[in-house]
Design a protein around this nucleic acid. Structure first.
Lengths: 347, 347
DNA sequence: TGTTAGCACTCGCACGTGGCGAGTGCTAAT
DNA sequence: ATTAGCACTCGCCACGTGCGAGTGCTAACA
């Protein structure tokens, strides 16, 4: 891999680790003093010159110290980074958080974002699991008043959604109970795609006089499940952006803030550069990002799975000078815990 | 009121309006040129000196222009500000937004925050209506699996909440339907405080073998309704803070950002300085705010009412140099529309 | 041949200086 | 009572200077 000898490797490591922490260019003398490599600053200078030729580090200006280049980070992420296991407390904290919230997806996503941002100090984005292949678990029609009823939909990934259905005349309690029962009998265990003509016909038959209720209800069920729009997206720790010196220029920070308040943009970020197999963590650095907004940021991204079908996304945003090792370990800790907990509970 | 003659009044008005727009101290010559008052800059200087003695304006430094003081803003808000009616489009936009979302409180609050922030360019905070005095409208128990059921609670202000109830053994569909019916018969139209011992006893009687289900369910209902905690709070336009020159210093902006990401803090802001009669709009300026965080900000605050009982809060935060007239008109436009729409729909 | 000390050079940055301009208060004339 | 005129203040910006961190190169050394 680029044929770095051990000394170059160590010097590059020192530069990257130092820069990740301090955000300041680092010079040969500093490396010699701070990281006892047993060689003089002059030697380090020669090595650094080589590393620069390899494109792994650059100088912001002639005669200043070096900083990692985008390829430098890429090399670091691919070949140098050692994963830093979570502390006992961190692991426990994450597990607790997930167990406590696993039955209420919305809160869990919110808390997951909070935990991620809290532990890493980077802004976190988390999306609710998508329901595309999700099965209907239970449908319930609840009376509200003369002209409306409430449709409660439970899906097999424990998400609960409700929506008011307005009608000219809503059936009463008993009728609704009967209709709920019929709907459940026909729909439970099905995905939206499986709601076909013959199913609808048989339901219409059962609904009889109340047939006018059926179509709006089915339409809303389909909407609830299919609507891309319906995926909620949560953020946390957006304020952390202000702590990064690379965003000291308010206008740069503003662009990111704008994006992180815009749902569409958040979805674009989470879905950037296509699909991603579950359990794998993707890191895109600077120009590797397709979104212009992220060209001088890094994005750490993963999908999580709540059951075996529907998945949501998790991402962390930071400057290119991210603490990748820490961010990755926290993120994979979360993924692992989600997996274990959902598995243990048989979801 | 402080005995300002018309000329002083106009000069003060010019200073405040100009400063609200430009955030720059304004001098006598500028006033003379920009606002044709028909008097010379020297005269304006004399008047400004008087206004300064009255404490309505100050100089950031000797020999710079004047800016309004906190008392100046207070005087402006109390005695000078002319309300600026919304444009036709703005009014229509707000009405449309409210009508579209009135049946889904959560979205409506989110959209209200968005609209407020969008129209005013100030960060907006909106809280869900509190349910304290709210009546139970409908309760439904929905089967999930062998060990859990879903409790759906509809209250008389159209809010829907659900929570999973874990049990050792959950009853089946038919039993749950029967229990739902019993619960509704006993609880519909009641507030939480009206759930008393004799009511519980009669319910326990009805539940018979399934008595073990009742207490958890009642407890959760009470929690859902009473929990202060449960009020969701929405923000929008937080990023706008970065556009105010008074927060150019990142550390000042940071404090606000921190608060606006913290639920507890948001609630504290919304509830600052106690109660507020519905329909009235409260403006607190700088030091008038009890929260240290807001000492150099202004807060525009109001409560809205969804039915006649449960109310939520709306607030806008800005620098003391806020465009009070515009902010107030947008906010009162929203309040008015909520009122009209809920009334028209008989909520 | 690889390593290191020494040195001249570069360049960003912090700092002091001085001129400029917007603004003021005061005085004297209208 | 109003205003022109004037001396004065003070923040801001452009400019020059010195400092320090860092570099590359060369020559000496193991």
């Amino acid at each position: 891999m680029l044929g770095l000898n051990e000394r170059k490797f160590k010097i590059l490591e020192a530069i990257i680790n130092d820069y990740i922490q301090t955000a300041e260019p680092i010079g040969s003398r500093t490396i010699a003093k701070k990281y006892g490599l047993g060689i003089s600053s002059a030697t380090i200078r020669n090595e650094m010159s080589d590393l620069e030729d390899l494109g792994l580090i650059t100088q912001p200006h002639t005669s200043s110290g070096r900083i990692p280049s985008a390829s430098g980070y890429r090399f670091y992420v691919d070949s140098m980074m050692s994963s830093r296991p979570l502390t006992q407390e961190e692991a426990m904290f994450l597990q607790r958080m997930i167990i406590d919230n696993i039955y209420q997806i919305e809160y869990m996503m919110q808390e997951t974002a909070k935990a991620l941002a809290g532990l890493t100090r980077y802004p976190a984005i988390v999306s609710e699991p998508k329901l595309i292949k999700t099965k209907i678990k239970h449908v319930q029609l609840v009376p509200l008043d003369e002209k409306s009823l409430l449709l409660v939909l439970v899906t097999d990934n424990k998400t609960v959604k409700n929506q008011v259905v307005n009608l000219n005349a809503a059936p009463g309690y008993d009728t609704l109970t009967r209709l709920s029962q019929a709907l459940n009998y026909s729909l439970a265990g099905k995905t939206v795609k499986e709601i076909n003509r013959s199913l609808i016909d048989s339901l219409l038959n059962i609904f009889g006089q109340q047939a006018h209720v059926l179509m709006p209800v089915l339409g809303i069920i389909a909407d609830m499940i299919q609507a891309e729009d319906d995926v909620r997206v949560f953020t946390s720790g957006v304020k952390n952006i202000l702590t990064f010196p690379e965003f000291a220029d308010i206008r740069k920070a503003e662009a990111i803030f704008h994006a992180l308040e815009d749902r569409e943009m958040l979805i674009a970020i989470l879905e950037q550069s296509g699909n991603l197999s579950p359990d794998s963590i993707q890191i895109t650095i600077g120009e590797e990002n397709s979104l212009a907004l992220l060209k001088n940021c890094s994005l750490i991204r993963a999908n999580y799975t709540i059951d075996n079908q529907s998945t949501g996304s998790i991402a962390l945003i930071g400057p290119m000078r991210m603490d990748y090792a820490q961010a990755v370990s926290v993120l994979s800790g979360i993924l692992l815990n989600i997996k274990h907990v959902t598995h243990a509970l048989g979801l």
